[in-house]
């Protein structure tokens, strides 16, 4: 299997290197794997995830995402990479002035797919996340759980090779959490996407084999 993420002596720091969050960590994640990253609050889980989509640059060592060095990546290459990554946020990050349907197809709009493709894909995904009736609503008309399902649909809309989820069920009720886990399991199992989920707690019922990394004192350790 090909490596999707390869970290070698990866160090991530804030304040120009003064505040080290991830310290000299080495690990790799393969295509199609489902990975949980856990750790205490402030341990650096979200920081590690942000470095995977280029929001934060590594301080030292190397981090390859889809074969691209995130330390040396150019802005244009980064935008190109992001078009093939699905990202799910704890606070949903939906565009409130856009309808649910338009939010879902945002990655398709960015890539330049035509309206017909966008409509078909939005219909399919909204049906998967059980929000077919809400296509023309605006995010603020939905509950938190519904908004997160829109966020998941958006992340899956372009069949990304990598899905990064930051506490995707952190604010959700049981039903919405169940829908989100099902969708992520499907993405990994059926689409062969690599799914990396940062969470406080691994769900008790989970049907796929997965890997578990824990971040402690700046180190990223795999739990066997």
């Amino acid at each position: 299997m090909a490596s999707v993420i390869t970290a070698n002596n990866l160090t991530i720091a804030y304040d120009k290197g003064k505040n080290i969050v991830i310290d000299s960590s080495t690990f790799s994640i393969e295509q199609g794997e489902f990975v949980f990253i856990t750790g205490l609050s402030g341990s650096g889980k979200s920081t590690l995830l942000k470095s995977m989509y280029g929001q934060i640059k590594p301080q030292s060592g190397s981090l390859l995402v889809g074969g691209l060095d995130m330390k040396k990546i150019k802005k244009g290459q980064l935008l190109q990479l992001r078009r093939n990554i699905g990202i799910i946020f704890q606070d949903y990050k939906l565009i409130n002035e856009w309808t649910v349907e338009k939010n879902v197809v945002l990655p398709l709009i960015i890539t330049g797919y035509n309206l017909d493709v966008q409509r078909v894909q939005a219909e399919k995904l909204l049906s998967h996340v059980k929000l077919s009736d809400s296509a023309n609503k605006y995010p603020l008309e939905l509950s938190g759980g519904e908004q997160q399902r829109v966020g998941v649909a958006r992340a899956l809309s372009k069949n990304p090779f990598l899905i990064l989820a930051d506490e995707p069920t952190g604010n959700l009720d049981e039903f919405s959490s169940g829908v989100v886990w099902d969708l992520l399991e499907n993405a990994s199992g059926q689409l062969n996407a690599t799914v990396i989920v940062v969470t406080h707690k691994i769900p008790t019922i989970f049907n796929l084999p997965y890997r578990h990394f824990i971040i402690e004192n700046g180190g990223v350790h795999e739990v066997h």
Partner: peptide, 8 residues
């Protein structure tokens, strides 16, 4: 948000 998803 658009930038996170790679919009130029």
């Amino acid at each position: 948000i658009m930038e996170v998803f790679g919009a130029p």
